[in-house]
């Protein structure tokens, strides 16, 4: 495999090759990762046929997205998700992928839902040999700057090393890649 495989490129290639098999497995893994744990998003996909996961992957691969943990956020923007349940699902998926990144020296990540600035999902990486990672829901105090509205579409997040330290007021923002 020399080029990043995409669904449309796969359709044009010879299915009787090892390269095809490996590319197909990779794309199916990606699709499972994007859709297995998000029942509400699957409902949206089922009722939104012209915009399929294959369309999403074709576009996001062609656009040069890093295909990292933020890919899940990108799917939310691509599908135009509006309800908090669906957004909570894709945000949780992104957090799970972030927690699997070996290079992350940070121990937690907090992500605000784009549908409600006070709602936050927090992922805490493995806490010890005895306690694994966990995903928590929280609400921000809406009197603080932390919940200031965004100027455009985006998902605020922050990471930290010490779980019991207070969150910073400043947030990094993931902005949709496909619209840039």
């Amino acid at each position: 495999m020399r080029r990043y495989p995409s669904p449309s490129a796969l359709r044009r290639s010879d299915p009787d090759t090892r390269a095809y098999l490996l590319a197909d497995m990779h794309l199916r893994n990606l699709q499972h990762e994007l859709t297995d744990a998000v029942p509400r998003v699957r409902e949206v996909l089922a009722g939104n046929a012209p915009r399929s996961i294959q369309d999403f992957l074709d576009q996001v691969i062609a656009a040069g997205h890093a295909m990292d943990w933020t890919l899940h956020f990108e799917l939310g923007f691509f599908l135009g998700l509006e309800d908090s349940t669906a957004w909570a699902e894709v945000v949780a998926n992104g957090i799970r992928k972030w927690m699997r990144d070996a290079s992350a020296v940070d121990s937690w990540i907090a992500v605000r839902l784009p549908t409600d600035a006070t709602r936050v999902l927090i992922g805490q990486r493995t806490q010890s040999l005895d306690q694994g990672p966990r995903l928590l829901r929280a609400r921000l105090d809406d009197s603080r700057d932390a919940t200031a509205p965004l100027r455009g579409p985006g998902i605020p997040y922050q990471v930290g090393r010490h779980f019991d330290a207070p969150m910073r007021h400043e947030w990094s923002v993931y902005t949709p890649w496909l619209q840039q």
Binding site: R3, Y4, H26, N29, L30, E33, G64, H65, A66, M67
Partner: peptide, 8 residues
């Protein structure tokens, strides 16, 4: 590949 993360 090309700066994009593979699933494996």
């Amino acid at each position: 590949l090309g700066g994009q993360l593979m699933s494996d």
